[in-house]
Design a protein around this nucleic acid. Structure first.
Lengths: 222, 222
DNA sequence: CGATTAATTGATACTTCTCAAATCCTGTGG
DNA sequence: CCACAGGATTTGAGAAGTATCAATTAATCG
């Protein structure tokens, strides 16, 4: 589940050098919005350090988290390549280091380097597969099942810190938003999981204690 | 909303000829499954005629429709390009004519023809954007809002027949599955829309009578 | 340390699901 | 062509799952 693919892998040294010349280093503070829904992407960011969230805002100002980006991921390419406005905002969950490649340079690389576009194609196909899972989960599973599933996925995606906690800290509100439920409901179910000794929490740190039990709750047998 | 992009557009005559030599014509009967979740794709299908549904089956055998494919669409490429098993089954909603391009030939085209892979990349980015909309809708909207939204989207995507009905006929169960609700709930809400004169139905034919009202119900102001 | 925000718990209301029953529709065989 | 079986659709009633609102407690930040 951990992402290890960079769109830049397997490129020649010369190509990498060319890309290097086009890019600019940028940093984002925790909470800063990198891409705004509705705007036009002007380029892409390649993440070096720090996690980000993709989210949509609904009419009531409620946020819906769709997925995350982490080191090695490329963001903003969807809007450029589909030639549509940005449909999903992206914000830094922690301080982020990234490099910026402007639109023109990005298309130059894309056109001159088939391998690069194939790498992006592969990444977007994986994201598409993952989106399918999320859709089926939201449509068919109960909030309880979804919470268990999301905890397992976060645990697998972001790995664990030294103490075994999921290596990504979200507010209860953000956690609820991933699952598509009210904050209070997410909290209540998380409390149940704690009572059942499936998980353990300390502030925003969450530690999975019983993976198998959660898989069962989530109806995941893959 | 109507799809007009073929992955094969803008290819040279020579390229098209080459692809032509690699492909085989195939037909699927209504209801036939074209791609099976869990299997490995052996090639891609380019749809000439007929609509298909992408769906997932949950543990209880309940089907979740994710999206549709229609004439001009390419299916099966996600599994090949991400090198993963098929994650979403595809079945014909009506008799389908398609051409089949085996895996090896597909990769040959992809590698020798950057334009082709860019076209696919563009298509997959659009699908990804659409998947985001579906996720936010399922997570944040009520069943009533989702039904209105789905009716509008089907109407825009599949256009109307001579009588103004949505040019795609689904069972109530399939409609409910798109929305992620129980069949009875979908029927009840559809009946409400009929009472309110927002829609009119005749068997599986559905006709939108008041687009604006449905947009309002769906909270769509884009 | 206050002040503000986040997290938690309780009570209640609302939405949606499930089960049951009735009606409608469709294709098939007589 | 008609009757009929089996499935799809529709409606009702009650149960279950979630959301909302309110009140407390905990955590965080200047």
């Amino acid at each position: 589940m951990q992402r290890k693919i960079s769109a830049f892998r397997e490129l020649t040294h010369a190509d990498l050098q060319k890309i290097n010349d086009m890019k600019t280093c940028v940093a984002f503070k925790k909470g800063q919005v990198v891409l705004h829904e509705g705007a036009r992407a002007q380029g892409v960011y390649c993440i070096h350090k720090g996690n980000l969230k993709f989210y949509k805002m609904n009419a009531d100002g409620k946020e819906q988290i769709l997925r995350f980006a982490m080191a090695g991921d490329l963001i903003g390419y969807r809007s450029l390549l589909s030639d549509e406005a940005i449909r999903v905002s992206v914000a830094a969950l922690e301080d982020v280091h990234a490099c910026y490649i402007p639109k023109a340079s990005f298309f130059e690389i894309i056109h001159s380097n088939p391998k690069f576009s194939l790498n992006i194609l592969e990444a977007s196909c994986k994201e598409l597969g993952e989106a399918g899972r999320v859709i089926a989960s939201l449509a068919q599973k109960s909030v309880r099942e979804r919470l268990a599933e999301v905890l397992l996925i976060l645990n697998a995606t972001f790995q664990q810190d030294a103490d075994g906690n999921i290596n990504l800290q979200l507010s209860r509100e953000e956690l609820a938003s991933m699952i598509g439920t009210a904050t209070e409901s997410a909290i209540r179910l998380l409390s149940e999981f704690k009572e059942d000794k499936f998980v353990e929490t300390s502030g925003r740190k969450i530690k999975i204690l019983n993976n198998a039990a959660l898989r069962k709750v989530a109806n995941l047998y893959e």
